[in-house]
């Protein structure tokens, strides 16, 4: 199999990690690790690195409070005339509230991908972990090949196929592809192996529960953290997807916010008065994701671990 690194899912080593972390911070740095200079260097470098990550987003926040004249006229982090609400009003007014239609479309596409796409992945991953069946390894091999094929390499082929059957420019051109999440299947297999003990399922079977019933009443609830993680990543993946909707959709009413904003950016080249709307729209479109990430920190961290650490 081409993906020998991925082919053996392991359980996520989260528990020892937290224990060790706590252990360490209790010890503090007084008795080891050097003096003031190294403390300054390490933390100074960490601050510089984080600043590089944060400053562009901060710029977006500041820029969205400015109107077109201030944007080009005043220093970047100075507050000009505070026009954030005016900018938001302009965004909302443009083309009869088209922006919120785009946001709504993004929520729908990403939501369907997150809820149903992840359920499909979790079911498949659970089956790969818990059931014995023929061609299991070769089927899982297909899943791994799916993980390894770049998304953008299948977008044009998908478009070509969709135009053959006349499905371009419909919501289905987006909703069907977002259900397919091979990496989710891989993660779900890992989660199933670490969260769902075979003994519990055996006990359920003794009590007369069929495999479908025991999945929905035992397996799925036990895998809930994994399900949420996969759903979160799928939500973000679909929300960020640009090439698929760009290729598939022509009707502006169907666009997700990523493509919509890029169209406005195109307008803003000949008409600079569009620039504040592009900037404010960008800020509005990342707020839902930022909130989701901060609230669901616990989940995405465990997701990254399970995916990559052996």
């Amino acid at each position: 199999m081409s993906a020998s690194i991925l082919s053996r899912p392991r359980t996520a080593p989260t528990k020892p990690a937290t224990r060790r972390n706590g252990f360490r911070s209790n010890r503090g740095s007084s008795n080891r690790g050097g003096g003031f200079a190294s403390k300054l260097t390490v933390n100074g470098l960490l601050i510089i690195g984080s600043a590089y990550m944060v400053v562009p987003v901060l710029w977006l926040v500041f820029a969205s409070t400015k109107n077109a004249a201030d944007l080009y006229g005043t220093s970047a982090y100075a507050l000009g005339n505070f026009s954030l609400f005016e900018n938001i009003a302009n965004v909302a007014k443009q083309d009869g509230g088209l922006f919120f239609r785009w946001l709504g479309n993004s929520v729908m596409y990403a939501g369907v991908g997150a809820v149903f796409g992840s359920l499909i992945s979790v079911m498949a991953g659970y089956a790969f972990d818990k059931f014995q069946f023929r061609w299991k390894d070769s089927l899982f091999g297909f899943v791994l090949v799916g993980v390894l094929i770049p998304n953008t390499a299948t977008v044009l082929p998908m478009y070509l196929l969709a135009s053959l059957v006349g499905m371009t420019n419909t919501i289905w051109a987006i909703l069907i592809p977002v259900l397919c999440n091979p990496f989710g299947v891989y993660l779900a297999r890992v989660y199933s192996a670490s969260y769902v003990p075979a003994e519990t399922l055996e006990a359920a079977r003794m009590d007369g529960a069929g495999p479908v019933r025991s999945f929905f009443s035992l397996g799925l609830p036990m895998m809930m953290p994994g399900y949420i993680t996969i759903a979160l990543f799928q939500f973000v993946g679909v929300w960020n997807n640009f090439m698929l909707p760009l290729v598939m959709l022509q009707d502006q009413q169907l666009l997700p916010v990523s493509v919509g904003i890029s169209i406005w950016q195109g307008y803003s080249v000949p008409q600079p008065e569009f620039t504040p709307m592009v900037i404010t729209g960008s800020l509005l479109s990342i707020i839902p994701l930022l909130v989701a990430f901060i609230m669901l920190q616990r989940f995405w961290k465990s997701g990254l671990t399970a995916g990559s650490v052996k």
């Binding site: 977006l60 960020n240 990523s258 493509v259 904003i261 990342i286």
Partner: peptide
């Protein structure tokens, strides 16, 4: 934080 910013928006910024 940057990972929560979609590629389109990152490129725009």
């Amino acid at each position: 934080l940057p990972h929560a910013v979609p590629g389109v928006i990152a490129a725009l910024i």
